[in-house]
């Protein structure tokens, strides 16, 4: 059993979002970088749990990024994983990134590929679907539970207003969200072990870029809150009805 988990480096959830160079670049100075939470808490931790259940499982991580992604990859290895592969490239285009991951996946012949449901910076929610198409594998998106019996996966995914449980055979690509696993904190043994585990760097394959970011914008500032006295909540209802016209 071989599992590949796709991880991405993103700004910390509390990072200040600002842009420079005529609003074309994210201000990365002073930003703390983390493993994209969906990749870490749900995809990676669930994969680690599967390996704990079946220690013969081989667990690899893949990240498309420049050398500045290495600390985040080491942090992921401290949680678990036998080996990490960094594709030495930087891109904002999801097709380009998916093509890199698909190349790594073809090489490693994985049974199961996990991604987070989206990154918290570009919010594309595209990598899992694109990788599955490039590899011509089944894809289950937005999974909240994942169980494995032999080569048959039972996956629960979100549907509008509920959940649906589905069965599908491996190999398979799954995008993971809340419910898959609980967040873990790396322990000292993991952190020490991560240093000795291989972090392989491979050069990117040739792939096209289908989209590009032209510019960023910050949303207009709110006008400010209109406070209503706690003694007169009916006034709030009147304002929402007559002024904001929301019901």
């Amino acid at each position: 059993m071989k599992i590949l988990v796709c991880i991405s480096k993103t700004p910390d959830t509390t990072a200040k979002i600002a842009f420079k160079d005529n609003n074309t670049k994210f201000v990365a100075e002073g930003v703390q970088w983390i493993i994209n939470p969906y990749d870490e808490w749900y995809a990676l931790v669930r994969a680690i749990e599967l390996k704990e259940k079946d220690p013969a499982t081989i667990l690899h991580l893949v990240c498309v990024g420049l050398p500045d992604a290495d600390p985040v990859i080491r942090k992921a290895l401290a949680l678990g994983g036998d080996e990490a592969i960094r594709v030495n490239a930087d891109s904002q285009d999801s097709y380009y990134i998916a093509a890199q991951i698909a190349a790594v996946a073809r090489e490693g012949n994985y049974d199961l590929i996990f991604t987070g449901k989206e990154t918290i910076d570009y919010n594309g929610a595209s990598i899992g679907g694109m990788v599955s198409e490039l590899l011509d594998l089944p894809f289950i998106s937005l999974a909240t539970k994942f169980e494995l019996a032999g080569s048959l996966a039972t996956v629960t995914r979100e549907i509008e207003g509920g959940e649906q449980t589905e069965q599908v055979g491996l190999p398979l690509v799954v995008s993971c969200q809340k419910g898959m696993a609980e967040q873990r904190i790396p322990n000292m043994k993991g952190i020490m072990g991560a240093r000795s585990r291989p972090l392989k760097v491979v050069e990117p394959v040739t792939a096209d870029t289908l989209t590009s970011v032209v510019s960023f914008e910050l949303p207009p500032a709110k006008a400010g809150v209109k406070l209503v006295s706690a003694d007169n909540p009916a006034e709030l209802v009147r304002l929402l009805h007559e002024e904001a016209k929301v019901f």
């Binding site: 929610a125 595209s126 990598i127 198409e133 894809f139 509008e160």
Partner: peptide, 24 residues
Amino acid sequence: SNNLSGKAIAPRLSARLKAGLVSG
């Protein structure tokens, strides 16, 4: 729509047709 089905299908179609995708 960028709803649950859209998130499952649009990226696959994008890769299949090699058609650029903007989601959201």
